[in-house]
Design a protein around this nucleic acid. Sequence first.
DNA 1: TTCAATTTTTAGTCTTGTCTAATAATTAAA
DNA 2: TTTAATTATTAGACAAGACTAAAAATTGAA
Lengths: 239, 239
Amino acid sequence: MSVENYLKAILYLHEEGKEQVSTTELAGRVQATPASTSAMLRKLGERAWVEHRPYRGVRLTEEGHRIAMDILRRHRLWECFLVDHLGFDWDEVHEIAEELEHVDSRDLTNRLDAFLGFPKLDPHGDAIPGPNGRFRSVAARTLLSEAPKGLELVVVGVVDGRDSFLRHLGVLGISLGTRMTLQTRHAFDGSVEVTYSEGGEAQMLTPSVTTRLWVDQSNPEPIIVFPDLDESETPESNK
Amino acid sequence: MSVENYLKAILYLHEEGKEQVSTTELAGRVQATPASTSAMLRKLGERAWVEHRPYRGVRLTEEGHRIAMDILRRHRLWECFLVDHLGFDWDEVHEIAEELEHVDSRDLTNRLDAFLGFPKLDPHGDAIPGPNGRFRSVAARTLLSEAPKGLELVVVGVVDGRDSFLRHLGVLGISLGTRMTLQTRHAFDGSVEVTYSEGGEAQMLTPSVTTRLWVDQSNPEPIIVFPDLDESETPESNK
DNA sequence: TTCAATTTTTAGTCTTGTCTAATAATTAAA
DNA sequence: TTTAATTATTAGACAAGACTAAAAATTGAA
Ligand SMILES: [Mn+2]
Ligand SMILES: [Mn+2]
Ligand SMILES: [Mn+2]
Ligand SMILES: [Mn+2]
């Protein structure tokens, strides 16, 4: 919980343009003393969620960025729910979302996302990260029918929101956030075969499906490389 | 958070008929050691949320009962939301609700309640406390093990909300609202045979099942609602 | 370049909640 | 009514996260 709030605060500061986040500024954001913040940064560094150069500042690692984006996603989705369905005003929701964001269930988050209609913006007009941990951008997504083979893809949207189609997706085991890799494309009729990252047998999808599904690359190229960080922790949370 | 889980666990045990709750039994419910539980009980006693007589057991005070009922209210409202609006199955929601229940905002709770249409029962058929901290309705219900033969019955709740039991019900083709008629009762082992109104073959049910299912006569009498109960009856049931 | 102001980290405590091991009280058996 | 088994509490530690006060590093002004 505390760890999550710190990560999100660092993300906010990055989004505001700060490459390096100072201890004091971060302390201000999380309402803690610089001393407490310093201790937390050491811990986050040990877990490889931030790169902390003492006295110099801190920056999210790729993994830390991923985690922070997921918290931001939950925060903004809940804000949508509170405003659009419970009738809160946009200035009343932040504090409550600040709590709800810490309920960490991938399934819950994705279903809430679907329930809300896959919103791209929260009630404050801020972009909502998608299930792949990146902001939803029209440019970044591709129809499954035109996606490349061999790369892990993640389903980021549907072209057709009719109930009949969504129910059919359910039968196929596909929902927003489903990860799959395109294995084969049959030129004859445009059908494709995919394998789900979660396992199971190869699945054939008809063009009626592949032309109605938005996908994106599941694992973007690493943007930042930290040569001297020691290896890997347990991937974070999320049942 | 921890404090809330202890209070709710004590409430559950009260609802199961235990006047005094023992340290060991409570420890089992909250998945902690008796030593930790003992320490927590001292603290809860200091805050006057329980009456703790060392070596004798513990009981919620009026204030503690009020707080616990409010947590139970949030838990069950969220379960309704997860099932009715996010499409979860009734055996998937408990763990998530276990987290959501701790988001403590009166405004949020009451708006959620309204959004859901002021439900009286959660997806497992358990009564939902109202904003006044008392149950809203008492449905006329009987254990299937004690129900009369030959009448059409409808499943209105489960005594045991554990996922394992709910999944077993799924295998048996039973869910909330399932209609059946008790055909035979075998005195030897307490097993019964029922037929489903929807059709299919007669189904044998073991006492482990029949003593955990609340049923009501299928004839559509309206649920009796007592908006302003003076006495806090102790509605039975649940995990 | 030097030194004082500012920023950051460290040292030492506290609180909450957890654990294991040891002790004490209660209950059940002989 | 003793004793043995069970149950409950206390003692002592630990981890997370927070604080204040003190020390160390960096920065900026003279
Ligand atoms: Mn938060
Ligand atoms: Mn917002
Ligand atoms: Mn809980
Ligand atoms: Mn329930």
